[in-house]
């Protein structure tokens, strides 16, 4: 959808056009729903969040000035709603709240063992794909969000910067650190079969 088309859609929605609103929903629901699903890990929550995202977008349409794409704007609303919900749930569970400032940096670099198979082949298996999503849920909110925006929603670094309100130039390293942590979680989980000789892989040697 071009910017002009988006602007027209916004005008129609502001005028209360139900068909225009439904177009907005149908055009964006998959990505908004997947964002919420990957952030919360719950289909039910994802539905609620997706629904609320569109209604909220409608209620606040006057705020949208077209400085970012309509999609980015919707993702931003969905991200905020997801994080709100995660925090609410955490409070209910009396768990430690991971603040947005916590970038999840644990100082661990990615240590690669030799793998039995190509990662690609490994991750083609259903159970291993599920493992990726399970490990994603263990990442701190911010790391999870940045990966979801990048890989699930396909936003560029620039769009992510705008959407998350990050400082210029920090997206690249933030995304890498999130991926690094996700890879380490998968390795810890044993998703990637290590070669038998690599029981002392942490000491390692350069090949």
């Amino acid at each position: 959808m071009t910017r002009e088309e988006e602007a027209r859609l916004v005008r129609e929605i502001r005028a209360g056009d139900g068909d225009a609103f439904e177009t907005l929903v149908r055009e964006n629901q998959t990505r908004v729903y997947n964002l919420a699903l990957r952030m919360t890990g719950s289909e039910e929550d994802a539905q609620d969040i997706a629904q609320e995202t569109f209604l909220k977008a409608w209620r606040t349409m006057g705020k949208y000035r077209g400085e970012c794409s309509l999609g980015s704007w919707l993702y931003r609303i969905a991200s905020n709603l997801s994080i709100d919900l995660l925090r609410k749930n955490k409070r209910q569970q009396r768990e430690k709240i991971v603040s947005l400032e916590d970038n999840g940096e644990d100082g661990r670099t990615l240590e690669l063992p030799d793998l039995r198979e190509e990662p690609q082949t490994i991750l083609e298996r259903e159970e291993n794909r599920r493992a990726v999503w399970a490990c994603l849920e263990k990442l701190p909110e911010e790391q999870r969000l940045i990966l979801v925006l990048r890989d699930v929603n396909g936003l560029s670094y620039e769009e992510i910067e705008a959407s998350m309100g990050l400082e210029m130039g920090t997206v690249k390293s933030r995304i890498f650190r999130a991926r690094e942590k996700l890879a380490n979680l998968l390795l810890d989980r044993g998703t990637f079969d290590l070669v038998p000789s690599s029981n002392s892989w942490k000491k390692g040697r350069r090949g």
């Binding site: 699903l37 190509e118 990662p119 490994i122 890989d151 699930v152």
Partner: peptide, 17 residues
Amino acid sequence: ALLRSMAKVMREDTVQP
């Protein structure tokens, strides 16, 4: 290879609402 395969899963495993 590892990072690419992870990103591929995340990109492709889209759930239909």
